[in-house]
Amino acid sequence: MRYERPETIEAAIALLADAEAKSFVLAGGTDLLVRMQNDTFEADLIVDIKSIEGMDAVTQTDDGFLIGAAVSAAALSENAALVAEWPGVVEAANLIGSTQIQGRCTMVGNLCNASPAADSVPALVAADARVRIAGPDGSREVAILDIPTYPGKTSLTKGEIIVAIVLPKAATRSGDAYLRFTPRTEMDIAVVGVGINLTLDEGGVVAAARIALGAVGPTVSLVEEAAKALIGSKLDQAALDALASACSAASNPIDDKRGTIAFRKQVAGVLARRVAQTAYTRAGGK
């Protein structure tokens, strides 16, 4: 196995594009290093992107935030402007693993690992975040939702690297939140995850809503029906009931070692109510 630590994105892309066999990008390594312990794991090339300039930076722009691919979850929580504008995204990233893991893990890694249970992904989808991709054929920008295609699979092509997450500027009177269900308090994987971003009008009525579910299908999903349930409401009981029903209905989980279908569908609705109320309060709703 070859380990490379290129200093430019071009060099990193060239390494990956030329690699003949199994190659992996290494950022925080909290998924990759664990997988490397498996008997069945094989790698020919590991490309560590942490030495590439800008990868570890959070930049506030006129349009929002640019978060480098090697920025750790802990670093996100230390950026006051980001926490103020996107508290749901930051709290989601800081539910991954444990304090020690959060010092290493990255949102881009969480996304590229392509687990349906990734904590930061529903929050990013709710925030309508995009990713900037660099590859042999140049750069492109795509929605978060379009990256994972199946558990463990992404839409990235050979040689492509996600270099940053692009978070839009949060709308006025908006708020986001994320909650996940795990049997343990930490060091656990979401059985259900819900990310919600709400924007209110001047009267406190929900004008826009994005609701994303994790761990209840092969990839994270954006639930339009759930958004419809909230838009036009002030989160009254009927709206929350409709939200819960829509989220339960949109859940398409499996029975597995982490939970049953019935449990996941029901808890998706319960969490959606709770997350919506937090997002609403953060948006200034009363």
């Binding site: 343990r184 930490e186 994987i189």
Partner: peptide, 11 residues
Amino acid sequence: FLDYRIPVCSD
């Protein structure tokens, strides 16, 4: 230990 869940400290 991910899916065989012994308690962690904070539990």
